[in-house]
Design a protein around this nucleic acid. Structure first.
Length: 625
DNA sequence: GTAGGGTTAG
């Protein structure tokens, strides 16, 4: 039995006594409850050094039960409080797959004087957990506890947590503390710091950390290249990639992922092919992640056939992501039937679909107008035990809404077990606009306002619903609400690659060297499309301005500017490819259809969701998007 | 007493 003293110490949160050589009782605090458990201990073979024994055990732990046995061993041998391997045990429990962070915390609670590394283990555990903000909480508690000193690793793990939680303010505080603590010169720590700044959108700070380094290793370059690529500066990522090559540094598989991601965003296929050649030369294509990124790059640049070729020729084993990437590529091109066929092939190859597979498939059905197939895919997903997320429900709502089955879509929202997000309500609102359903449009708009959506488009859709019913008073009210609410519009822009160089246009752009020439071309386009019966659809204009001005605002949308420049800058008969950051505007869609006919050009526009391929006056999306 | 930790596709 346990002595009173032992019980007393147990209640104070400490580990308690050794009873036998096989194990011990321990009072643990798990999820806030005190639990009295028996821990079976291991015993050290005769003649073996105790420390070495523990170290070797730790490398063999493959389950929580193993970890508990080592813990029991430490307790029964009376070394728990002082054993130098304890932090390693704690770390194993906090971060490894077989561990359990909650249990690690209960172990931590039994330590009378936690060392730096004990704290670090828990902070690191939280940093990679689904709740990284707790790492910062623990970091603060550790700063207050005077017993142990923060070191470079403490800061590193806390910064990692900030990177995952996008906690910029906290990251800046920790940045200051690294300087005070004298650990700021640490390269690994700086890499994480750079990563936090880049992920939190502070690209200038990220570059500053990079620039002030006298010696940089590959991870440092990678962190910035990826940061720029995933931030708002794919151009910067590519030029840094080039600079790296100029400095005779060898990009590795992680570097090329950043470069490929930048190419995908810009639609810079020439650059993407250069990266691809490098990958082959350096045999980086034995890495499945790299192959997936190459497939994605070709697909996003509009070359599904090239993506397919890479897929076919892969020397390494395909993962579920490989299949998903290609299914998504087909979805973006409106090839719903092919996407479904590829899914069948995937199943034949023995690869199970995951949440992303089904999302891509529903998206493929949506873009191709395959309503029944989409619903079938959703049911199949549920039958296969893949949990639908709000995105899956959102896609089905979109699918039903576009097909005019709005009541059905609304029933789905009412009965689904997840909380609808902004995108979902926006899809419903969009459908209400198309099919003139005022009642549900009002419900969706109210939800969007409640959720704090300040998107200009939401207000415009509602106003269009009222306008279609000639409810001018309500139109006025929406306009008024827009003014009062400081609604923001994400600025639209378009890219076009001409002679291997990327040109960027924003709405009404006059910054391009040839802008006058472009505007003359646009006037010519405007004149010629009218001959083909085009009438501007001014409801797409979001500003409260006169009709004539509205027409002008439409004329100079970024995608029109890019197409006009494409007509000027590329030779007759060659396709024109444009990439837009938002969905293509309905008026631009009409105009570009006519341009493809009048100028006899194939025009490909990739918008945020899909490709539009305009040939001879019609679009591959069949006006369904 | 020392090392540990950083950058990764759909």
């Amino acid at each position: 039995m346990l002595s009173n003293a032992n019980l007393f110490s147990a209640y104070k949160g400490f580990a308690i006594s050794s009873e036998t050589n096989e194990g011990c009782f321990s009072l643990l605090r798990i999820k806030g409850r005190l639990i009295f458990t028996w821990l079976a201990a291991l015993s050290c073979p005769r003649g073996m050094n105790g420390m070495a024994y523990i170290e070797s055990l730790l490398t063999k732990c493959a389950s929580l039960s193993h970890i508990k046995q080592v813990q029991a061993h430490l307790i029964t041998t009376g070394t728990f409080q002082f054993c130098p391997s304890r932090p390693k045990l704690l770390e194993l429990c906090a971060i490894s797959r077989c561990g359990d962070l909650h249990y690690a915390i209960s172990i931590f609670g039994q330590i009378s004087n936690p060392l730096t590394n004990d704290w670090n283990a828990v902070i690191r555990g939280f940093a990679i957990s689904p709740t990284p903000t707790y790492a910062v909480t623990w970091y603060r508690s550790m700063s207050r506890a005077s017993s142990s000193k923060l070191d470079a690793l403490t800061c590193s793990f806390a910064l990692k947590a900030c990177a995952r939680a996008l906690a910029l303010v906290e990251a800046k505080q920790i940045h200051c503390q690294t300087i005070k603590l004298g650990v700021y010169s640490d390269v690994l720590l700086k890499t994480t710091l750079l990563d936090v700044y880049a992920k939190a959108g502070e690209l200038r700070c990220a570059k500053k950390v990079f620039d002030e380094m006298s010696v940089r290793d590959i991870a440092m370059w990678n962190a910035l290249i990826i940061g720029l690529a995933q931030g708002d500066d794919p151009h910067g990522a590519l030029s840094l990639f080039k600079r790296m090559r100029e400095e005779n540094l060898m990009p590795n598989e992680i570097t090329v992922l950043g470069a490929l991601s930048a190419c995908s965003q810009l639609g810079a296929v020439k650059e993407g092919e250069r990266v691809h050649r490098y990958i082959i030369e350096e045999k980086l294509d034995s890495n499945v992640i790299v192959c997936n990124a190459v497939i994605d790059m070709f697909a996003k640049c509009g070359f599904v056939d090239k993506a397919y070729m890479v897929f076919e020729k892969m020397s390494c084993e395909r993962s579920v992501v490989t299949w998903n990437t290609l299914i998504m590529a087909l979805a973006m091109n409106g090839n719903g039937v092919e996407a479904l066929a590829l899914f069948e092939k995937m199943k034949k190859c023995g690869v199970d679909g995951d949440g992303v597979t089904y999302l891509s498939l529903i998206c493929a059905c949506n873009h191709a107008g395959l309503v029944e197939d989409g619903i079938r895919v959703f049911d199949l997903m549920v039958a296969c035990g893949v949990q639908p997320s709000v995105k899956h429900y959102g896609s089905v709502v979109d699918l039903l809404g576009r097909a005019g089955r709005i009541e059905e879509a609304y029933r789905m929202i009412s009965s689904m077990p997840v909380v609808p997000d902004v995108v979902l309500w926006q899809s419903l609102l969009g459908a209400c606009k198309t099919y003139g359903n005022v009642e549900l449009a009002e419900i969706a708009s109210r939800k969007l306002v409640e959720m704090g959506s300040n998107s200009c488009g939401d207000f415009v859709l509602l106003s269009n619903v009222y306008a279609a019913r000639k409810r001018w008073d309500d139109v006025g009210k929406v306009r008024e609400a827009m003014k009062n609410r400081d609604v923001r519009k994400v600025p639209g822009f378009s890219y076009i690659e001409v002679e291997g160089e990327i040109h960027k246009f924003v709405n009404g752009d006059q910054s391009h060297l040839k802008w006058r020439e472009i505007y003359v071309k646009l006037d010519e386009i405007g004149f010629r499309v009218r001959e083909f019966g085009y009438v501007p659809e001014t409801s797409y204009v979001l500003h409260d301005i006169g009709e004539e001005d509205k027409e002008k605002a439409l004329c100079y949308h970024s995608e029109k500017l890019a197409v006009a420049f494409g007509l000027i800058g590329t030779s007759e008969g060659t396709p024109i490819q444009v990439i837009k950051n938002l969905r293509i505007c309905g008026d631009c869609h009409e105009v570009i259809k006519l341009v493809s006919k009048i100028y006899n050009r194939e025009i490909i526009v990739r918008d945020r969701a899909r490709f539009h391929r305009f040939i001879d006056g019609s679009c591959s999306c069949r006006d369904y998007w």
